[in-house]
Design a protein around this nucleic acid. Structure first.
Lengths: 218, 218
DNA sequence: GACGATTGCTACGAGTTCGAAGTAATCTGG
DNA sequence: CCAGATTACTTCGAACTCGTAGCAATCGTC
């Protein structure tokens, strides 16, 4: 595998990479392309040594992993400009979406799949920055509500616009292919029970329409 | 666009009977399905508040994120059974694949996209467990080679078989759809310059064709 | 109603990640 | 042969993640 040794095999036919970054609202600065397609390379090795089913599954996982790395790097960079981590942004964004401007910590934990201890930590940080407040739940003394502040809402809006413009919009692929990709991943997630398929549509309707959360009950 | 039909907003608790402890002892134990499809739910909100391009891009990112979470959870759990983290396994697996059984730390960093400081940490840990050894590079005193030990190779094999059998094989989707998914993600990665497209094939050939590496040249 | 089980959250601590700075070796262009 | 730039790796420190234990409130059942 060549690149291991300092002297790369083929000379630098690359004339390209003279990045004159200046005006493009680029979202990635420290990101360097890997020397080759790790998914394809490992898939070939897997095909030699293991069975085809394992190889294709490995390729799926690796492709998702590398895509995730590519995107989370861009997203994190943008969030850094707003003094946020992605985790803190995600919570803030869901709070901003909520009709009541508030969510219980346990709802955040379950829905965004963040361990309870981590949610505590995230809310601590957001509260310290004056972006949310903790409010006792009106009818359940065990429960704490996170309420977004005006400052938090403003930041959520700004950060979202930034993300939309620099990452989500220019993410690549046509609308058609984006849709196909999301569908395939949905099938994968259904197969892995990533969410409650039976009740999902119904719950989404509720979220979109009204509370159904503060009042609890399902 | 995934599915979703109009669902009645009110939903009664219905027969919650199917809840019970019938958790399949699959690869995920602590993993609980989210209450709804977060991708679809957030996509709808984005469509209302922002433009369609941002919404579809957000859906792509979120779908990848949730899929990643689903799979990394399973993978991490399996690795835990072998006293490994995924990061340590990944390095070990690439070392096991290498014809020379060795890689430079900088190659690992660039290829697997792990920051240098993290590679140091990972190798420290692997070395402490007797799975790899650090060896000075024969011709470049700046460079350190990580060499996999017999013990490391054995563990890599065992862990890989475990992963193949419990995660990669049963990952879901037909071979056909796995292939489509990998292709779409490859297009996304190309668009985001996740790897060096121009030289990838060539480098992969070299990897596959063995040696000609430690000796440098090619 | 009472009591054990469950749920919601927090405190603590171990482990991991990784930017930034530092050291050493190599390469480059005189 | 020699600066200065570059590359390779490590050290240090700050931040983040998250399992576990613990506490408080509520629920479920008889």
């Amino acid at each position: 595998m060549s690149s291991k040794q300092t002297g790369s095999s083929v000379a630098r036919l690359s004339e390209s990479s003279d990045r004159r970054a200046s005006d493009r609202p680029r979202a990635g600065s420290g990101f360097q392309p890997a020397p080759f397609d790790v998914v394809e390379a490992s898939r070939r090795v897997w095909m030699e040594r293991w069975d085809p089913e394992a190889a294709s599954g490995m390729a799926v996982f690796t492709a998702i992993l590398r895509s995730y790395q590519l995107l989370i790097d861009q997203v994190s960079r943008v969030m850094g400009n707003h003094d946020l981590t992605f985790a803190r942004y995600e919570v803030l964004a869901w709070l901003a979406m909520d009709p009541e401007s508030s969510l219980t910590l346990s709802w955040i934990s379950k829905t965004l799949r963040i361990p309870p201890a981590t949610v505590t930590n995230i809310i601590d940080r957001l509260e310290g920055d004056g972006l949310v407040r903790r409010v006792p739940h009106p009818s359940d003394a065990r429960t704490t509500l996170a309420v977004i502040t005006a400052r938090g809402r403003k930041l959520a809006t700004t950060a979202t616009q930034d993300l939309n413009a620099t990452v989500y919009g220019p993410i690549g692929l046509s609308e058609q292919r984006r849709s196909e990709l999301v569908d395939l991943l949905a099938a994968l997630r259904v197969s892995g029970k990533e969410f409650d398929v039976a009740r999902s549509d119904e719950v989404i309707e509720e979220v979109g329409s009204r509370q159904a959360r503060t009042s609890g009950r399902t």
